[in-house]
Design a protein around this nucleic acid. Sequence first.
DNA 1: AATATTGTTCGCAAATATACGAACAATATT
DNA 2: AATATTGTTCGTATATTTGCGAACAATATT
Lengths: 103, 103
Amino acid sequence: MNENNEQIARFAKALGHPTRIAILRFLANRTTCYFGDIFDELPIAKATVSQHLKELKDAGLIQGEIEAPKVKYCINRENWNVAKSLFAEFFDDCACKKGGCCK
Amino acid sequence: MNENNEQIARFAKALGHPTRIAILRFLANRTTCYFGDIFDELPIAKATVSQHLKELKDAGLIQGEIEAPKVKYCINRENWNVAKSLFAEFFDDCACKKGGCCK
DNA sequence: AATATTGTTCGCAAATATACGAACAATATT
DNA sequence: AATATTGTTCGTATATTTGCGAACAATATT
């Protein structure tokens, strides 16, 4: 339970920035997802883009693959589904059940 | 779209700490949700608990009601459902559609 | 071999987040 | 009226996050 809390928080934290949400949406709707494609779409420095990608990767939500000299990024489907399930369960669990404190 | 990204990020950021996840789970499973009940459950100072509650409140996920001298906290059902929908839609939208960049 | 392309990493600055004790505010109780 | 109970707010310290330019690394191209 505590484990789950930490895992959800970790995912949520990675999702907690508009740029990172935008990156994920972008990754889902393109056939080519090289760094350059992502960078072109965003109004920020490439160092910053790289940093956001690193955070998403550290959280396990995406993965990178080198296709020298480019780098191709993808959503990590396995972990994505884990996150999806955790959030779905969480939003249901906390939905003010009968006997809960909500009016 | 950009609007949605910011709203999701705002919710996600609020969910991005284990203590706040724990608080929300607690709120969902108790009939009495006074500050003291929450504080008793957590291994941190009351000033810190109060701060986390404030963040959840600012994000719109919970609401507080004064029952002097106590304060009763509840999940904000309306916004909770908004968040639930946004996340569900987001996790579906980004789920590596055909033609996307995932293998 | 020299140069160009593509991203990452480093070092820095500024802003936010986290956590705490102490002081405070507001009502309840004696 | 004095005191106790319940939480919030303030001030502070530390850590993390965000963002950038510049330097760097690795392969591709000439």
